[in-house]
Simulated scan of single mutants.
Amino acid sequence: MLDIGGISKRFGSRQALADVAFAVRPGEVFGFVGSNGAGKTTTMRIVLGVLEADSGEVRWKGSPIDAELRRRIGYMPEERGLYPKMKVGEQLQYLARLHGLSNTDAAASVQRWTERLGISERVGDEVQKLSLGNQQRVQLCAALVHDPEVLVLDEPFSGLDPTAVGVMSSVLRDKADSGVPVIFSSHQLDLVERLCDRIGIIAAGRMVAVGSVEELRARDGATVLDVHGPPTGWTDGIPGVELVAADDPTHARVRLAPDVDDQDLLRAALAAGPVHEFRRWRPPLTELYRDVVEAGPAAADQPAEPAA
């Protein structure tokens, strides 16, 4: 398990991270989301040892991460860390060698990953001559070429077309299925929702929520239903029922108090008119993210996740 244990970091007068704590489990794809400047990249750089935390500790399999352990991490920075005038194949083989692979193993790994990511025909090209999307594929190859035990990826889907997004998503899922903890940051919340087992939301340097999408949906304990059919006003006077939204006269989204039975609500709707749809509202991650972040410091003061 990759355990980020209460790390804090200050840059001058700015508190960049404040007691950030979460864990990424073996075989799990963990989405790390937050606005620009929230602390995602700082956290990842501390995991890699590029930055040193003021307090707290990062551990892998129970041990503090040292230089030897970092060689077994695959890291993809948001800013491309490639040599622009170096040929793709030569660069990837060089990076594999830096991680301890032999010439033979490095060459085989370069061939395997460039084929998997669809850039095998570009191994003789200089990086600077590739499109931005293909440079992103090379960057992912660089993170994978030494068969890492942990993957830490900062905005890996940036600049990719839908085909490349599908390929990269498949690679990350396969690595997780082989037991590798995968953590990546992204602003593409629909992609995070589809791909990730769990999600961590960071705001102003604090973890404000950690869990699966279903767990985040259940944070306030309320039941929200979409009801199509009954005319306007059918919820008037029903105790414990709050009208959340009404897009048209025959559609209502309602929130139920904990003691209200949804079947009682269905009977009330049927009494008012025909019901064409009656279903639990499942808000997308975009809406969950907004609600969690807008909750502000009060939410951030609560521990996001028990210590591993």
Rank of each mutant, 00 (worst) to 15 (best):
S212Q: 06
P230S: 07
A107P: 00
E28M: 05
L82N: 04
L160C: 08
E126Y: 07
G34R: 00
L153F: 04
D248E: 13
F11A: 11
L51A: 07
C196K: 08
H187P: 00
E68N: 13
Q93S: 14
P156N: 04
G229W: 01
R173Y: 14
D3G: 04
R137A: 11
G34F: 04
P156Q: 06
R137D: 02
I4Y: 08
V138K: 06
C141F: 01
L117Q: 07
P181N: 06
R253S: 07
A218C: 10
H228C: 07
G12D: 13
A246F: 02
R25V: 03
D261Q: 05
L82W: 00
I238P: 03
I65L: 14
L195H: 05
Y75T: 08
D125R: 15
G200D: 03
P306Q: 14
L51D: 10
C196V: 06
K129S: 12
T286G: 15
G31V: 10
A246K: 12
L17N: 02
G296R: 01
A67H: 08
G49Q: 07
E149P: 00
R206Y: 03
S35C: 09
L92I: 01
E215A: 11
V254Y: 05
P148N: 12
A143E: 03
V138Q: 04
K129P: 02
E68F: 13
L225E: 01
P230I: 02
E68S: 14
G37I: 10
S120N: 15
S212A: 09
R80T: 11
E149S: 10
Q136K: 11
G89S: 09
I119N: 06
V208M: 07
G37Q: 06
R10F: 08
D301V: 11
M207D: 02
R10A: 14
R198L: 05
V110I: 12
L140Y: 02
D105M: 13
Q128T: 13
W281S: 15
A203I: 08
R280L: 13
M44C: 03
G62L: 10
A300M: 02
V58Y: 03
F157H: 06
D247F: 04
R70M: 05
T223W: 11
G124P: 00
L265I: 10
R217F: 02
P284N: 07
P274F: 10
V47L: 11
L160K: 01
F32I: 03
V58F: 04
V254P: 00
L256E: 03
R25A: 13
R137Y: 08
W60M: 09
G124W: 12
V47G: 04
Q188Y: 08
A106E: 09
T163L: 15
S120G: 14
Q302G: 14
P181M: 03
T163P: 02
D301L: 15
G89N: 07
A271M: 07
